[in-house]
Design a protein around this nucleic acid. Structure first.
Ligand code: FES
Ligand code: FES
Lengths: 141, 141
DNA sequence: ACATACCTGACTAAAATGGTCAAGTTTAGA
DNA sequence: TCTAAACTTGACCATTTTAGTCAGGTATGT
């Protein structure tokens, strides 16, 4: 069970963006430099964030990205959904009438994994970008 | 973020084992057939479960595996640890004095991922094999 | 005009995953 | 004693996923 870089970077970038957003749009170049994330990779990520209306883009010189919503209304769930970072604990297709073993009944651990998935998603639903901004200081090691 | 088959299978197999354990040792062949898991793969998994003293083996004809502890004392954490299914949300090395960006400070999202990791691990620490046995019925679809 | 910055799609090296395969050793029971 | 069931070990491998890179664009403020 691990978090992928895409999801981690998406959140990092958005926190960075939210911090500097106030006056001017923020360029991916700046985020790339500040957070140490590849610019090309960031572009892929922001393309998805834009499609999902989490950010707006402003082209041309002095352009960049701006949040498209109040930080309070951007939950981790929304971010992860946008970049296809999905939580998948069950093996079976959720809609399917069959279990992961191919039988007509769900397997003996299905309920457990389902519970786990809910447990994790709850965390993501309850965290907003705003919550992350409150914890502004980079923690000293 | 997804659960790997190794972790999922380990738990499935142990629940199956615990159900039939009462009188005789249970052969991997039986578990393989009942749960639809490759026998060769199960052998790898049980080798690890044995090293971690979660099961005992009995060789020869009529042999098989038996739980080595009370189902109540086998937590998901123990199972996952045994088969190297680890929860990893942070990018940086936990012991390291540096952040995932190579800087001397932890990155702006480090605390968040740390919190997430704790959140997930709590779930695993609180679930025992015994809890799973109570929910014996395979749920009808 | 031109530099800055967004935009798009194709491509790929490396790692992880989810196994298989082969060649054993041990032991109960006929 | 012989044999088949079942554990044991280690090597091997195909496929998929990840985490990017690369090579082109297009839009726009100055
Ligand atoms: S995980 Fe859904 S049936 Fe096994
Ligand atoms: S995840 Fe630990 S420093 Fe970034």
């Amino acid at each position: 069970m691990k978090l992928t870089s895409k999801g981690r970077y998406a959140v990092m970038a958005l926190v960075d963006l939210a911090r500097f957003d106030s006056i001017n749009p923020v360029s991916l170049r700046d985020i790339s430099l500040r957070q140490g994330i590849s610019l090309d990779y960031l572009e892929q990520i922001f393309s998805k964030l834009k499609k999902n209306e989490i950010v707006k883009s402003i082209r041309g010189t002095q352009g960049g990205y701006v949040l498209n919503k109040n930080p309070n209304d951007i939950k981790l769930t929304n971010i992860f959904h946008a970049v296809d970072e999905k939580v998948k604990t069950v093996q079976c297709k959720r809609e399917s009438k069959r279990g992961c073993n191919g039988k007509a009944t769900k397997c003996i651990t299905h309920n457990l994994w389902d519970e786990l998935e809910t447990h994790i998603n709850t965390f993501f639903e309850n965290k907003s970008l705003d919550d992350l901004l409150k914890n502004k200081k980079e923690t000293r090691v």
